[in-house]
Design a protein around this nucleic acid. Structure first.
Length: 774
RNA sequence: GCCGAGGUGGCGGAAUUGGCAGACGCGUAUGCCUUAGGAGCAUAUGCCCUUGUGGUGUGAGGGUUCGACUCCCUCCCUCGGCACCA
């Protein structure tokens, strides 16, 4: 007996849409719950079953919470600026706006086909001028607060995308998008001072419920280290070094400067040619080569000069080596080969002195500091030298300009007299352009539109030029969760009251790949908006959960190029949306990566058909009444923990149970309300067939009556091994029970004539008779 | 190397947080039904043996406990992230 999912699903999707069933009134006087998916980039391929897995999970959670009486905000939108649409435009000459629109329509249809309960009135699109007006507005605020500045600096450059990239976008020396090896290039760039927020970004992690993995990744990325900064003397010059291990200063046997260190030009040494040769070579090394050479360190000594160790006046040789980075700390280090692996490798290679100064955490060979613990010695030596306490971060400022077309124009006018001046007339619209092709020169295609570029300076009225770089992909997603609250507001990026009522996002679900990209950037912008009074919470996303990948049938990641992508369209066509939804949840814990398996899909479909064909009587048998309430209670506990696989297993067990008992209308209705969060179309239909006029969405999560069981099943162990079990009446006393158990043939046999040492009794669960050891 | 997550049948995974290991699903086997089955239904299904009131079993080894997949120690392996950040 199969159900006609095609017909049913269409029927109810139309019903929900026509009756505005998923509209959220943000002003209702009910507890609020903001459940958010990471919004997708509207790609031409549409979404695959992997994306849908996350959307289904939040959909189930939202539906469950609505039934529990929460006012749930569950919106969706489009992160639509980005390279694929632009590359498509370059190839085919079709404006990204057009392809983007087409892709959005398609994905939106896919989402509706899957029965996702989004409030589409709140839909946003980062490429709408009414949206990016506010992205630009926030940029202006950053600029006005000194957090956006322009600087000529060597940046990561992707020769294929012909644009600069942020540190976070370079993975393994390669462009995060296209995999091309990046190079360095000097370009005048807009940079956001995320480093000013390093400490706040670190602190905030303590207050949010995020996976440890993501928190740790952000911590490592920010990379805080506390230490001291102080000077070594070389001739009449001072060289500042940073160290976290000032306690090992007596073990410093040489000094290393980075190849870019300015001091190299200021001091005289013998082997000038050799040194400049080395520096030149180091400069030309690609990111790749540097990474590959980690094991084999190179360097060159500055012959004829020495540095003086300030703690003991000892003369040590000075090296230039590219294992010391110019953009971290002071670009110079004291090398302690005995206590630093990198220094050790280098010292071994160049045959340098290695002096041990800490043993078992106690200082040795360190003159008056001998005998101190490392911890204490740091303090004492620091004080003795008058060294400055210093905190360094690995985090770098965020490179914010891109030399591409399809992004938010940076609302700045460059005036030769006044410098950068803010464009006040927002939105600054992205103009039409003839050629989308990036120029490769560091200008974006916008630079070619003279009428747009040449303007008068709003300050002095002189000739000025617009900024032609655009913002990166990540800009629009840094604040979109505000906009859903108030997406039609023309006066403000969000209404104050709504913002205060609805933030933070209670549950945020998406992939882990955004750990140090979107999730870090968005926290930065949010904290900035908090600091200038536009946000009322310190963090944007209170609870974060990551979806595990849906791997293809072959165990590999789904990708278009491998041809192993499963589209929800074909699954829905063959099995229906409810089967797809349930299968995606039943696969396993949703935070885990699991392989797609068509057989599993069939199993779920079989289950739905069984439930469809179940016979509903007038009255349930008493054990069914108890069973149903117990099960609903268990399902509720699992949903609270965001476990979606086990509730489905419970429902499958239930089918087996009622095949031996009578299921009445009342219990079936309870089950359907619960089941509607997983399979909304299916449940609406059966709900209606039971004679209900009002949509199942309007119902409440069933109240359950949990009764004490009259009987319980007891495990009987002897010496911790299960030897027997039986069912007893709940009223039985411990003493009676023990007497009863001892009399049992099976147990007597094991006790034999041995002496009983102890009897462990766990009420209503187990009895363990412990015998004396022989 | 460092950080994080994990290791349970042929496979995906359960286990009320220290109390019946393997729920549920897939697969497989046998049977029923069928003109037919890549449909449906029923039963069985961790491994071992001498088939029992048996032994053994959650990556390996040790420990705590009446009792350990669960807690502690040592080690191995897999996946994800970072990687010369002093």
């Amino acid at each position: 007996m199969k159900y006609d999912f095609n017909k049913i699903e269409k029927k109810w999707q139309d019903y929900w849409e026509n009756n505005n069933c998923y509209k959220t009134d943000t002003n209702l006087d009910k507890p609020k719950l903001y459940v958010l998916d990471m919004f997708p980039y509207p790609s031409g391929e549409g979404i695959h079953v992997g994306h849908l897995k996350g959307y289904v999970a939040t959909d189930i959670y939202s539906r469950y919470k609505r039934l529990k009486g929460f006012n749930v905000l569950h919106p969706m939108g489009w992160d639509a600026f980005g390279l694929p649409a632009e590359n498509y435009a370059i190839k085919h000459g079709i404006h990204p706006k057009i392809t983007t629109k087409k892709n959005i329509d398609n994905i939106k249809r896919q989402m509706m086909d899957a029965g996702l309960s989004y409030d589409w009135d709140r839909e946003i699109n980062t490429t709408d001028k009414d949206y990016y007006k506010w992205t630009q507005w926030i940029f202006v605020k950053l600029f006005e607060n000194g957090l956006a500045y322009k600087k000529m600096l060597p940046i990561n450059w992707c020769p294929s995308c012909k644009t600069g990239l942020a540190n976070e976008e370079v993975v393994d020396g390669k462009c995060e998008r296209c995999g091309t090896l990046t190079t360095k290039k000097d370009i005048d760039q807009w940079v956001l001072k995320i480093t000013d927020y390093a400490e706040q970004l670190l602190d905030g992690l303590d207050d949010i419920d995020w996976p440890d993995k993501i928190k740790e990744m952000q911590k490592n990325w920010i990379g805080k280290s506390e230490g001291f900064e102080f000077d070594f003397k070389i001739e009449d010059k001072l060289v500042s070094v940073f160290t976290t291990r000032i306690d090992t200063l007596f073990g410093c046997t040489y000094l290393v400067l980075s190849p870019e260190h300015p001091l190299v030009d200021e001091i005289n040494f013998e082997n000038k040619d050799e040194v400049s040769g080395y520096i030149e070579k180091a400069k030309n090394k690609s990111e790749r080569e540097r990474i590959a050479e980690v094991k084999d360190k190179t360097g060159v000594e500055l012959k004829g000069i020495k540095a003086i160790n300030p703690i003991n006046g000892k003369e040590v040789p000075v090296f230039i080596a590219d294992y010391v980075l110019s953009n971290y700390g002071t670009g110079a280090i004291m090398a302690v080969p005995a206590h630093d692996e990198r220094d050790y490798d280098f010292a071994k290679k160049y045959n340098l002195e290695i002096t041990e100064v800490v043993k078992d955490d106690i200082l040795i060979n360190s003159s008056q500091f001998n005998g101190l613990t490392s911890e204490k010695a740091k303090e004492e030596i620091g004080k003795h030298l008058g060294a400055t306490k210093k905190i360094n971060y690995k985090l770098r400022d965020w490179l914010f300009s891109r030399q591409r077309y399809w992004g938010e124009p940076i609302p700045i006018i460059n005036c030769s007299k006044c410098g950068p001046v803010v464009e006040t007339n927002l939105p600054l619209e992205l103009p039409e352009v003839e050629k989308y092709e990036p120029t490769g020169t560091g200008d974006s295609p916008l630079a070619g539109i003279e009428s747009w570029v040449n303007v008068t300076c709003p300050k002095c009225g002189g000739n000025a030029k617009r900024e032609t770089n655009t913002m990166p992909q990540w800009a629009g997603s840094c604040w979109y969760y505000f906009r859903y609250l108030d997406n039609k507001n023309d006066d403000s990026f969000v209404g104050k009251e709504l913002e205060e009522k609805w933030l933070p996002v209670d549950l945020y679900v998406g992939g882990a790949e955004h750990a140090v990209l979107h999730l870090l950037y968005a926290r930065f912008w949010h904290k900035f908006l908090f600091n200038i009074g536009y946000a009322s919470t310190k963090e944007p996303f209170y609870k974060l959960r990551n979806i595990g990948l849906v791997l293809a049938y072959d165990g590999q990641k789904m990708s278009k190029s491998k041809g192993n992508v499963v589209s929800p369209d074909e699954v829905i066509k063959n099995y229906g949306a409810d089967t797809l939804r349930i299968y995606e949840m039943f696969m396993g814990p949703f935070e885990q990566a699991i392989q797609w398996n068509e057989q599993g899909l069939k199993g779920v479909n079989r289950f739905l058909n069984k439930l469809w064909g179940i016979e509903v009587k007038e009255e349930s048998s008493p054990e069914v009444v108890i069973y149903v309430d117990k099960m609903i209670n268990r399902i509720e506990n699992e949903l609270e923990k965001m476990k979606f696989n086990t509730p489905i297993a419970f429902l499958m067990e239930f089918i087996d149970f009622v095949s031996r008992h009578d299921l009445g209308k009342k219990e079936m209705e309870k089950i359907l309300i619960v089941f509607s969060v997983f399979a909304p179309h299916f449940s609406e239909e059966l709900w209606e067939r039971l004679g209900n006029k009002e949509s199942i969405l309007k119902q409440q999560w069933p109240n359950v009556n949990l009764v004490e069981d009259e009987e319980f099943s007891l495990m009987i162990q002897v010496n911790g091994k299960l030897r027997d079990k039986d069912v007893f009446n709940s009223n039985i006393s411990k003493e009676e029970l023990i007497e009863e158990v001892k009399k049992r043939e099976k147990i007597k046999k094991w006790i034999d004539d041995k002496e009983i040492e102890d009897i462990v009794y766990v009420p209503k669960r187990l009895i363990n008779i412990v015998l004396c050891a022989e």
